[in-house]
Design a protein around this nucleic acid. Sequence first.
DNA 1: CATGAATGAGGCTTCATTCAT
DNA 2: TATGAATGAAGCCTCATTCAT
Lengths: 238, 238, 238, 238
Amino acid sequence: MPTTRTERGKTARVERAKTARYYRKREQVVDVAVQLFSKNGYAGTGVADIGEAAGLARGALYYYIGSKDALLAEIHDRVLDPLLVETSAIVGMDISFQARLRLLSEALLRQIVHRRDHVRVFLHEYQQLQGEHRVRFRVKRRRFESHILSVLEEAHSEGKLREPDLDLAMLTYLNLHNYTYQWVSRRPDLTVQELARFYCGIFLNGILTDPLDQAVADAELEHGRSVLGVLLTKGLDH
Amino acid sequence: MPTTRTERGKTARVERAKTARYYRKREQVVDVAVQLFSKNGYAGTGVADIGEAAGLARGALYYYIGSKDALLAEIHDRVLDPLLVETSAIVGMDISFQARLRLLSEALLRQIVHRRDHVRVFLHEYQQLQGEHRVRFRVKRRRFESHILSVLEEAHSEGKLREPDLDLAMLTYLNLHNYTYQWVSRRPDLTVQELARFYCGIFLNGILTDPLDQAVADAELEHGRSVLGVLLTKGLDH
Amino acid sequence: MPTTRTERGKTARVERAKTARYYRKREQVVDVAVQLFSKNGYAGTGVADIGEAAGLARGALYYYIGSKDALLAEIHDRVLDPLLVETSAIVGMDISFQARLRLLSEALLRQIVHRRDHVRVFLHEYQQLQGEHRVRFRVKRRRFESHILSVLEEAHSEGKLREPDLDLAMLTYLNLHNYTYQWVSRRPDLTVQELARFYCGIFLNGILTDPLDQAVADAELEHGRSVLGVLLTKGLDH
Amino acid sequence: MPTTRTERGKTARVERAKTARYYRKREQVVDVAVQLFSKNGYAGTGVADIGEAAGLARGALYYYIGSKDALLAEIHDRVLDPLLVETSAIVGMDISFQARLRLLSEALLRQIVHRRDHVRVFLHEYQQLQGEHRVRFRVKRRRFESHILSVLEEAHSEGKLREPDLDLAMLTYLNLHNYTYQWVSRRPDLTVQELARFYCGIFLNGILTDPLDQAVADAELEHGRSVLGVLLTKGLDH
DNA sequence: CATGAATGAGGCTTCATTCAT
DNA sequence: TATGAATGAAGCCTCATTCAT
């Protein structure tokens, strides 16, 4: 039993280590919740619905989730945390800014395409987050945007950009990608890489002074992807 | 309350002629509801909240709104109806497809920029619509999209498009515009016309075979705008 | 409709004046709650129980009570407010301290004997009060105790007290009276005035340097009671 | 788990011999429960809280306590059993009734002062006891009160009492002592013996026909205390 | 002995809606 | 037109207790 003896001889409770089994089940519950929140909205989904869908009685459900609030926060983490890990790795890479924007595009679209439900919840239910959580995620969101902005700033300082309003450029980049969650299920034929290529083509052609050479861009990308793969793998076993 | 017994034994309310005052107040109530739905979500907003914000007691509120459901439907109408009137006028105009896309862009952004709250509700709470309403608005949405698509198809048939996937092009056009609701309040300096010019510049440069000449486009636009103005005014007094 | 027009022309909701009927029913609900809290304890009584006993559905109940918490606070007010009004009138009266202690005794016992349930709740459930309320009532409790203390201090300054520990004397005075709630229902034959006479006889004989002359005390009391009656009646129509 | 089938088909747990270690731990758990019940009330304290404070998981906790009910009963026993042992020894002693009342006072105050939490639970949560237990403790309470009453009756039969209502006298004696639990933590300077002397002084002066001589009372008390000490020690090894 | 996982009833509260006045 | 009062289902969450391991 994980307790510690204090000097007064009393036993005090310590955070009991949760088993792997606990965490596995917890993940499953969150998976279920994501689907329901995505479909019916956060406020429109009852905790009872989640329990039923997860095959858990009300009480047991709370053993895993703590609160409905916490569930929503967890879903936000699931979207932002991997995204921030990846994007902060990308912005530091020693490749052309075009390639970095393309890698960012792929990272972002991976979330949007492969975790549609998470992203929908993330984009729709942000306002339902309360107090602390709200602040926490505002910060993370800003951090993500600043990553994109930093790449655009570099391009701007090299005189490669036609558009001087970098913030608007960044927001347009977001437009192009983020809204994809609204219709992507209607187009299961499109892959992340195809979309990234298409969006970046449009975006770069739109804001660069010189026209983009897709062939060059594609070639450089291959290299970038493998470097990034190494970076992220190393990061995982720190 | 004036009711009448139908032959099936159900009671149906006699449609009493509503005064102009009734409709004015009703509009005010919907205005209030839009704000609250936008801020707290549909499910997250109580009918009591609406009543309080509108200065109406529960009973009186229901006299105006009928039901919470109806309120949501009305908000959808407020977004889609003027948009469809305008876009169907635009697609029939005898000007270049570039100009038509630009006019569509302005029409769309007018809703997004000037009726942010409506658009947010429209984009987020669609799934909360029940049965009949859901179907009705799905149809309207599709109609709107088909207007854009028809313009792109014309461009394609003229051999002006680099991208053969017209559906993807249309969706990308939507991406570019629709997501704007998420951040536009942070950029009150941007006007509808500026945004339309910027988005269309990027979009057309991205999908056209020949580069876009903005000067020409801008010139033609002026003409288009005035023609459209006439069309819509005539439409109003049908 | 009680609304006010702001200078911007919007209507803002004002605290709607509650009807007398509302307040009457509210009192009844509190009456019911007091009985249940007294019998089963605050935590041991469900809001559903109160509703049932009051003949109100769950929803309607909340229309009257606001929250279970507020109910408990109201009960505390019902005990302390009249007590403080009366005791602060008494301590300022121009009669012997013996007579004032006797009048205080009667005031206190009136609550204990005639509002047994209130007093039991007041004495047992104080700790269940949360935050603000807790503080508010701690202050009121102290104020009440200070009234008694002030009378004892006057007696002490006149050299009439054998016991120098005035705080202990005051607490003993409380002992003598307050615990009565625990058994008074077993002795319905005892009146407030009898009990006050008995308790004050014991208390004063116990702490005075000179023995108490009950005959004198009783005579003076008659006068005190009528003066107090006048004071309190005047206070009511302020 | 070792169970055995009774002839009626029910399963009954085989009483396994409990080790000393078991009883030690059980005592600790009850200690913890008393504190929590005293602070938050019986209904306001969760079994989980007790487990946490005791450093035991839910399952293990139940191994020791059986049920929350049983815990409350045990606490009542802890107050009443030693009190009854002592008071029944006292009432049988061959000393003046004044001395016996003084010894009873000390016995009672020992519980109140040194086991404040127990006493608070005892006085507040009596009504939460269910069925059997409720009856059992009502009997014990009555027995305790009858001990006091028997001493007063003796005094009365000797013509020493001014007050003929013996029940009221007994209840007043209880008032004086029992309410002490409410404020004693604010006065840690007061000892049991001081309080007993003070209370008995007041009480006896209040109900005796002849004034009490404290010097005599104190002298006799010394003797009484030592005799009682012997009695109780013998009682323990019966 | 001890645990973590599970249960289902019940906890307090808010909800959309109705209706007599 | 407008209101206050009422309803009952549903909201989120905690509870005492059990039991396989």
